[in-house]
């Protein structure tokens, strides 16, 4: 993996997939578009390790910034400039 090679500044869309296994992508960012703010590095995959796997291959963990308005629409109570950072593994991200 890692072939996508996301870098800071890249626009990304979070995969809108529903999966039954353990994963760390919150429902409210699935299908939403954001921007990679930084890449934390590579970590064992929780989706593998949670189910007896060795966590390999390691996955790049990206800090993705979303506009709150894009996530919640009119339900968001705050400023249009407010943002949300979520750490997401690269295999949950696609180029829009």
């Amino acid at each position: 993996m890692g072939t996508l090679g996301f870098r800071a500044g890249d626009p990304v869309t979070v995969r809108a997939t529903e999966v039954d296994h353990h994963h760390r992508t919150p429902w409210f960012v699935k299908g939403k578009q954001g921007k990679v703010r930084l890449v934390h590095g590579e970590f064992f995959s929780p989706e593998s390790r949670a189910h007896g796997g060795d966590g390999l291959p390691k996955r790049r963990l990206c800090q993705v910034e979303f506009q709150q308005r894009d996530i919640w629409g009119v339900r968001y109570r705050g400023s249009d400039d407010d943002v949300l950072l979520v750490d997401l593994f690269e295999h949950w991200l696609e180029r829009p």
Binding site: H21, H22, P46, R49, A50, H51, G52, G55
Partner: peptide, 11 residues
């Protein structure tokens, strides 16, 4: 056990 398993067990 690892923390991912612990979370999976909770979930």
């Amino acid at each position: 056990i690892n923390v991912d398993e612990l979370r999976r067990g909770i979930e």
